[in-house]
Design a protein around this nucleic acid. Structure first.
Lengths: 225, 225
DNA sequence: CCTCCACGATCAGGATTCGCATGGCCGCAG
DNA sequence: CTGCGGCCATGCGAATCCTGATCGTGGAGG
């Protein structure tokens, strides 16, 4: 699964790259429209994440040139404005989907998954860690087969940890993945949600899988049966 | 059940693909007429969804070329105009059915089912979930064997949920599946219909199978016993 | 070994968003 | 003209989210 990111904001590009790599995608990054066309023409990407506002050539032009050359890689456009014009222009140029800035990184991952999902109708969407099972299609969790209620934020955070089991996740990573990348998180938002997840998981008999790493963040490690 | 989608609007193509995949069909997508002919000649599709307005070769030409080569896959044409000429031209070229844009995605699924039924004559048309039985051929519902009246929109929505039991469905998905893909849904249309379905199902003794996922959508899970 | 402090955990309250019920309007068909 | 299905507007109630304050605790340094 090879993805091209076209984004001139280097900081956002780096965030995107890290997020997609966490989702086990191979990522290339370019920073202007000309490079984007060159890369798209020479490499068969499974999808292209394309900012609209770009130096040299904008996203519409890039899309059109690629489509003119019969490059049919799915294109996910990132648009700053929520103007209908932009949306229409992008889709007419040949984009497959679009996201309005600022977005949560998990949204990008989800859309890319949708765009690149080839005919595998019964793809399993379960994430597992010991007794804990997240059904990402149903947006539900079970522990030992028993359903446990989660709010959508709780679900999003737990999903992120399950996708990165054993890896340290900082508050910053969680914030920009679950909230949007501009969100100015309150002082202890993450702590509150980790606390809620802990109490729900413990109450459901799954123990406490979150390891606090003082000064850095948290790590999820499955509790053995 | 393998389907070829020929549609140059990438976003519509993506929506179509998702809908057909939800209906358990294997889907290939191409974006112009030339690719369509190539794909049609080399792969034995159970049906082809074919836009009329296409780059390189239009839908009529594609149809004619495929028919000339004795490709007999059923063809469902998508036409932007409601002109009789188009319809006649399409049918004369060898298409089997046609749909006028913009259409509801469920229409496409329904037509494809009809077109491919010949090959699978005894397909069951019942959808079940506990006491609830939808007869998709008769457009009627029974709960515990007792008939319950549904309007056509109510029926369409419930059918969609039964086809996707246990899966989270967003308002957007429901809108583009039941209404047409351009429909700009009012503020709380979906809520109103879910509300009606709930009250009818509860009144009929089927309990409330809809689970509200706040901030996301709804999930249908059959009520046991 | 003890103290202190910075960081994390917890709790409660308030703000906000979201969903639901109700009622009414509109357009079409009979 | 009338009835029905489909759609929209409003207001209420509640789930959820976020904040600020307070409490707990691990660990470094003395």
């Amino acid at each position: 699964m090879r993805i091209l990111i076209v984004e001139d904001d280097h900081r956002l590009a780096a965030s995107l790259r890290r997020s997609l790599m966490e989702a086990r995608m191979a990522v290339d990054v370019v920073h202007d429209g000309e490079e984007a066309v060159a890369a798209g023409l020479t490499t068969p990407y499974d999808a292209i994440v394309l900012d609209v506002m770009l130096p040299v050539l904008d996203g519409f032009q890039v899309t059109r040139r690629l489509r003119d050359q019969r490059i049919e890689s799915p294109i996910l456009m990132l648009t700053a404005r929520d103007s209908v014009d932009d949306r229409v222009a992008g889709l007419e140029a040949g984009a497959d989907d679009y996201l309005v800035k600022p977005f949560a990184l998990r949204e990008v991952v989800a859309r890319l998954r949708a765009l690149t999902r080839r005919h595998v109708p019964n793809r399993k969407s379960d994430l597992r860690a010991g007794k804990v099972v997240l059904d990402t299609a149903a947006h539900s969790m079970t522990v030992d087969g028993k359903p446990v209620e989660l709010t959508s934020k709780e679900f999003a955070i737990l999903e992120y940890f399950l996708l990165n089991q054993g890896r340290l996740l900082t508050r910053g990573q969680i914030l920009e993945h679950v909230w949007d990348y501009e969100f100015d998180g309150g002082r202890n938002l993450i702590e509150v949600y980790i606390g809620r997840l802990r109490s729900k998981l413990i109450q459901a008999g799954a123990g406490d899988p979150f390891v606090t790493v003082r000064g850095s963040g948290y790590r999820y490690s499955a509790v053995r049966g």
